[in-house]
């Protein structure tokens, strides 16, 4: 199925957010996530199924003012 991660389209197998993140290289990383504009806590990624067309945001720490 097709998902959008930070606006880029990716083809992934049907499954959870945690599985998609692993597939796309985020395993073990310090990140925070949202699906379709809703925050998904790290602990909830394993039980968050993705659907075709879902929009995922992945952010990491960054410099800020």
């Amino acid at each position: 199925m097709k998902i959008f991660l930070n606006d880029d389209a990716h083809e992934v197998d049907p499954g959870t957010l945690a599985a998609a993140l692993d597939t796309l290289g985020y395993g073990g990383r310090k990140i925070a996530t949202a699906v379709n504009g809703r925050f998904v806590a790290a602990a909830a990624r394993l039980r968050t199924p993705l659907a075709d067309g879902d929009r995922i945001e992945v952010v990491a720490p960054m410099q800020g003012g």
Partner: peptide, 8 residues
């Protein structure tokens, strides 16, 4: 600090 998108 802040947070921004990061690629895989």
């Amino acid at each position: 600090v802040s947070l921004r998108r990061e690629s895989g």
